[in-house]
């Protein structure tokens, strides 16, 4: 676990840390990863067909459209414009 890895993880996670914070995070993450490394000891292979959570096709939802939700309620936790969510401009 080095700063480069932390930077990469921050990019994937969309998180910022100051340099001081980053140092602390790196130490904590190193200790955490050390704990996670215990799984490497065990010799097991994963077979997804052996999971017990699958369902049959007949249990899958039937296709029927229902009325949508009031737009103003969906947008009630943001400040919309023209009934849209507002983001910084995406194209230069």
């Amino acid at each position: 676990m080095d700063i480069k890895t932390i930077d990469h993880l921050c990019e994937l996670s969309k998180l910022n840390f100051t340099d001081d914070e980053k140092q602390k995070v790196m130490e904590e993450m190193s200790a955490i990863i050390e704990l996670m490394d215990t799984v490497k000891e065990i010799d097991l292979t994963y077979d997804d067909t052996k999971d017990n959570n699958s369902i049959t096709y007949s249990e899958v939802r039937k296709d029927a459209a229902k009325p949508s939700y009031p737009t103003d309620r969906l947008l009630s936790n943001t400040e919309p414009q023209d009934n849209c969510y507002v983001v910084p401009k995406m194209v230069e």
Binding site: T5, H8, L9, V25, M29, I32
Partner: peptide
């Protein structure tokens, strides 16, 4: 929460 997110992204990356 940030630690968990970092850990999760590490495990999946």
């Amino acid at each position: 929460v940030k630690r968990r997110i970092l850990l999760g992204n590490y495990a999946l990356s």
